Amino acid sequence: MSDQEDYRRAKREAYEVETQPPATLGRDEFLAWRSPREVLSGPASLDNQTWHWLVRTHLSAFIANERFNGPSSYESGPMWCFDRFGMSQTTLSDGRIVYIGGEHEDHYDPDFYIYNDVIVIDPDGSIHIRGYSRDQFAATDFHTATMVGNSLLIIGCLGYPSDRVAGVTPVYRLSLDTWCIERMTTDGQSPGWLHGHAAELSEDGDSVVVTGGSCWLGERCSMIENIDSWSLNISSGHWTRLTSLDWQQWSMHRADRKFNRLWELRRALWAHENPSCGISDDWKFEDAPNFAELARLYRIDGCEPPADGEECGEYYLVMDGLTVRFTESMFSVDVLVKGRLSTDRLEVLQARTLATLAKLEGIEWEIEPLSVLASDGAD
């Protein structure tokens, strides 16, 4: 056995030891606290051995459930865990770390769940878990938590589809004295149902400035990127739009609204170009992957191929001096022009891209225009 294999085995063994449940945690207590728990009013203490163990180890719901041979999540519902996406983490001046909300897994997973709790870890490792009713604090993920005095201002959220309200930006205030959470009343022109953004306190300390992220526009609409900056006055709760960039955005998707196969195409191309790696392309469609047409995608004027972006599925080109970004997902191709193309050139870009996508998929694609973010709406 090689030194590298010895090292990997030692790491696996150490991980198994570190993540073992405490000897005092029995299966009955595990089952009693296996699932997320709703409370009637908060802040309610939800401290227990099971959840403390999961906070310390960051085990996924699936692995932790297996440790106790727990019931299937398909039958018993999702299991509680601390392995989350979109959870905010704030370190206080005294060394305590405050974690808020977050989600585990994607919507199709049986352990998918969006949390509305607050977890505090003291410098000595002590753990405090507090729960809230959904009326006090909705399921919240991909938000921001900004320190304002002795409180955290929680802004934005993706949340469950049934909780979303187009044009509204949820804002909560968490007291670091009482751990009470209250919804903040706001007015003015807000960024809308925003998530995945950034927020920071202004230099004068009077407001929180919000940038980036994506906004949900409605049930059958694509997300729109937030390209502007917004300010929330802490005292009055008034939103102000700080910028109004005149950029073009739109989304393209299959006419039948089914998943596209761009990811499978690019994986098949990579496997084709790197046969020595021995990785299967996992191509599961009847027709062969059209690599020639894929090479034409986003090459509008016969110029150089588009450059790869920093994120997976992002591609850039420069057209008439303007940067154009294409972002591929399983649902759509989202396009952002940093500026405004002329009407004729915009039509060329859209028509040629749609035609290439249709050849790749064997089905028509269509454009969904994206309206101006939040237009003139108010909370």
Rank of each mutant, 00 (worst) to 15 (best):
M1P: 07
Q4S: 12
E5W: 06
Y7S: 12
R9S: 01
E16Q: 09
E18S: 02
D28G: 00
D28K: 14
F30C: 02
L31M: 13
R34W: 11
P36I: 06
T50R: 13
H52F: 09
W53I: 01
L54I: 02
L54S: 00
T57C: 00
F62S: 12
I63E: 14
E66F: 00
F68R: 06
N69M: 09
N69A: 04
G70Y: 01
S76M: 12
M79I: 06
F82D: 03
F82W: 09
D83T: 01
D83G: 01
G86C: 03
M87Y: 00
M87I: 09
L92D: 01
S93E: 14
Y99C: 12
D109N: 15
D111E: 11
I114P: 01
V118R: 13
I121N: 01
P123S: 05
G125Q: 05
G125Y: 06
G125V: 08
G125R: 03
S126A: 15
H128S: 15
S133Q: 10
S133T: 05
F137S: 10
T140E: 07
T140V: 15
M147L: 15
L153P: 05
L153V: 14
C157M: 11
G159N: 11
V165Y: 07
V168T: 05
P170R: 07
R183V: 04
M184R: 13
G188M: 06
G192W: 07
E200K: 00
E203K: 12
T211N: 05
G213W: 05
W216A: 01
G218L: 02
E219M: 04
R220M: 07
R220I: 00
M223K: 11
E225Y: 10
D228R: 09
S231C: 10
N233P: 01
H238S: 02
H238Y: 02
W239K: 00
T240F: 07
R241D: 01
L242T: 01
T243R: 08
T243C: 07
S244N: 12
R254V: 00
D256V: 00
F259S: 14
R261T: 02
W263N: 06
W263D: 12
R267C: 09
R267Y: 09
A268H: 10
A271C: 15
A271F: 05
P275L: 08
D281M: 07
D282A: 12
D282M: 14
N290W: 03
C303E: 14
P305E: 10
P306G: 10
P306T: 05
E311W: 09
D320I: 02
L322K: 03
V324D: 05
S329G: 13
V333Y: 04
V333W: 03
K338Y: 11
K338C: 07
L346A: 14
E347I: 02
V348T: 15
L349N: 06
R352A: 08
L354W: 05
E361D: 10
E361I: 03
E361W: 09
G362L: 06
G362Q: 08
S371T: 13
V372H: 12
L373A: 07
S375D: 14
A378V: 13
D379N: 15
